[in-house]
């Protein structure tokens, strides 16, 4: 597997601004990575390495010391916290039929300036995975995180992402909805300041009929921070009755910037795919309403920011308390 990844990396090269997948990302901030000469490998390509175009998906496999593998047996529930913050790390979770995974993925106490991490999750029939990913860098850090999630028939994955901090992060999520009624629910909130950057790349492949996906992303950007959101949905041929939605809301302050790119490729007529994007400052009428009830402007903005941040996450997921606890600590 390692050699397959190295071979593929040698083939596609390191990220450059000319590569559309990295067009928003400041590739000059990536530390230099030497790709050793690959050795011929006969390993089976179960992770789609031979066709991988995202270097961030290959680094962890090519350079991690060894992968961390977990299997959750049928009908079992596994609650875990993953703190795989070596420079390169690769984790693989296989959730068997009717099993459930509740996983919090967060930083380790030992902060590294450069991290490239990959998390593979394989959901068998009727399995469920609830993920809570918290990205929190420091001033000089560059973090790359790649998720590859395959979802079988009647299985569901719920991703709750919290992108915080001051450094540069790139989170790529590739989800394959491979069986009827497979479902992906992706929610992310980026709260950035002090020239932080958070780049998100989503690719959801609807490879079976009657599959559902939704993406709901919000950004609250201040102090010259920058975010990008590249949201891809692929509705494949012979896959009817697909439902997909994508909504991105952004509040910008203090010369902050956002780039949003919906990327929908629809190869079937009988599908419902929507996307929307809003960007601006606080809603003037909402502010006025709160102030007209005696709440002064600063507090009114705080209230609206808090609701903007909290509204995105659902109350009934296993990580709801943790998410709202984190938001409270941040003043939201």
């Amino acid at each position: 597997m390692k050699n397959l990844a190295r071979s593929r990396l040698a083939n596609i090269g390191l990220p450059s601004p000319k590569n559309e997948e990295w067009s928003y990302f400041p590739v000059s901030k990536l530390r230099s990575i030497d790709i050793p000469e690959p050795i011929e490998s006969s390993a089976s390509d179960i992770l789609g390495i031979k066709n991988e175009t995202n270097a961030a998906a290959l680094f962890p496999i090519a350079f991690a010391a060894y992968p961390y593998n977990v299997t959750i047996n049928q009908k079992e529930t596994e609650n875990g916290i993953l703190k795989t913050r070596d420079e390169f790390s690769h984790s693989h979770f296989c959730v068997l039929e009717n099993a459930k995974l509740n996983l919090e993925i967060t930083g380790n106490k030992t902060e590294r300036n450069f991290i490239s991490e990959r998390i593979d999750i394989e959901l068998k029939e009727n399995a469920e995975a609830f993920l809570f990913f918290k990205e929190q860098g420091t001033n000089d850090s560059t973090h790359l995180t790649h998720f590859r999630i395959s979802v079988s028939e009647n299985a569901k994955v719920y991703c709750n992402m919290l992108l915080l901090g001051k450094g540069i992060s790139r989170t790529s999520v590739e989800i394959f909805l491979n069986g009827k009624n497979a479902c992906a629910d992706y929610r992310s909130l980026a709260l950035l300041k002090e020239q932080a950057e958070a780049h998100t790349h989503i690719k959801i492949h609807h490879n079976a009929q009657e599959t559902n996906s939704s993406q709901f992303a919000r950004h609250f950007l201040t102090e010259n921070s920058y975010a990008s959101y590249d949201g891809g949905v692929f509705a494949m041929e012979d896959c009817s009755k697909i439902s997909s939605s994508q909504l991105v809301n952004t509040i910008l302050q203090d010369d902050a910037k956002i780039s949003v790119k919906p990327n929908l490729k629809i190869y079937h007529d009988d599908v419902e795919c929507s996307h929307g994007n809003t960007c601006g400052s606080f809603d003037a009428e909402e502010l006025f309403y709160l102030e007209s009830r005696g709440i002064e402007e600063t507090q009114a903005k705080r209230i609206l920011t808090r609701s903007f941040a909290r509204e995105i996450f659902q109350n009934d997921t296993p990580h709801a308390n943790r998410i709202f606890e984190e938001l409270s600590l941040l003043g939201f």
Partner: peptide, 15 residues
């Protein structure tokens, strides 16, 4: 206007 996410009771109390 509607202000989703701002709880009515909390809002009344803050006001």
């Amino acid at each position: 206007i509607e202000i989703p996410g701002v709880n009515n009771i909390e809002f009344l109390r803050m006001a």
